[in-house]
């Protein structure tokens, strides 16, 4: 069985970064910042929630970063965690600095297919970044969906990204929001425990529920198992995957997971597609 490739051919050279300027920089946590980027000249194609860009730090290199904000106009936001040379350089970029952007690449969350039903958004750590545009879309078209639940996990309250915004979602009462951390001091008003524990406490109507999960791979596995245990079909459970993506266009071979290329056939997959692959060690 051959995997279907996306139908839209991009004639321009997808390997050349498009110049963007940092117009805003917000610190999320000790090692994570959100950069707002605007094109210097022609912009990239408007991304869909779930897609990623390759961000290029001049003279240092390029890394895949999910898109954490798709603003009206041509502004895109990227939430970057400093874990390597390139991401450290990107995190250090001040307003006015130039970065290169290639993309958008990969599959999106398919929000439209969830319309009319319930949506559960589950994020672990910086996994909230590619789900943030989903929440924006759900809030923007709130009446297209029934129950909307957002579950967010992090190691500690200090390591929760988009803290203020998550609090405002919670305060709006238009959607159900729960946050949980691995441990906290008494000042923390959210939950303590792991994300799967939160799922036990959420009402799930499996026939009409779409679940979107992003976080560390271990968390994806535990969380998907919990949701499947509640009767949601594997096709309706979507996860965003991470691998070593270098080209973003299916040509470098680094991001393979068995038959799939994460950059091209993902990063968003139905669990029915990647669950069995993730069960295999070192695939």
């Amino acid at each position: 069985m051959a995997l279907a490739l996306p139908a839209d051919v991009r004639p321009a050279d997808a390997m050349v970064p498009v110049p963007y300027r940092v117009v805003g920089r917000a610190r999320e946590t000790a090692d994570t910042v959100t950069l707002s980027l605007e094109p210097v000249g022609s912009p990239i194609v408007t991304p869909a929630p779930g897609q990623f860009n390759m961000l290029y730090a001049f003279g240092v290199g390029e890394v895949p970063i999910s898109i954490s904000g798709i603003d009206a106009g041509q502004r895109v936001r990227h939430t970057v965690r400093a874990v390597g040379a390139v991401s450290q350089e990107l995190c250090a970029a001040e307003a006015g600095a130039m970065v290169g952007v290639r993309g958008p690449f990969g599959t999106d969350w398919g929000i439209d297919s969830a319309a009319g039903g319930d949506v559960i958004v589950i994020a672990g750590g910086i996994g909230l970044a590619p789900l943030r545009p989903v929440v924006h879309e759900l809030l923007r078209n709130r009446r297209r969906f029934r129950r909307v639940t957002v579950l967010v996990g992090a190691r500690s309250p200090e390591e929760l990204v988009f803290r203020g915004e998550v609090a405002s979602w919670q305060a709006s009462a238009r959607i159900t929001v729960r946050t949980t951390v691995d441990y906290a001091t008494a000042a923390w008003k959210g939950d303590v425990g792991v994300v799967p524990t939160l799922i036990e406490r959420v009402t799930i109507d499996p026939e009409v529920t779409t679940v979107m999960i992003c976080g560390p791979e271990v968390m994806l596995r535990f969380t998907a198992a919990e949701v499947l245990g509640r009767g949601v079909a594997a096709e309706r459970v979507r996860v965003s995957m991470e691998r070593n993506v270098q080209c973003g266009v299916g040509r470098c071979g680094h991001c393979q997971l068995g038959p799939v290329l994460i950059c091209l056939h993902g990063p968003v997959f139905p669990w029915s597609r990647v669950g069995p692959l993730l069960a295999r060690r070192e695939l």
């Binding site: 390997m15 001049f58 003279g59 290199g61 270098q246 080209c247 040509r251 470098c252 680094h254």
Partner: peptide, 19 residues
């Protein structure tokens, strides 16, 4: 076999970059 690295090429010049 087509696997490839796409990497920044080291440059001594701060004005020049290539992959």
């Amino acid at each position: 076999c087509f696997c490839a690295d796409f990497r920044e090429a080291a440059s001594l010049s701060p004005d020049h970059a290539e992959q």
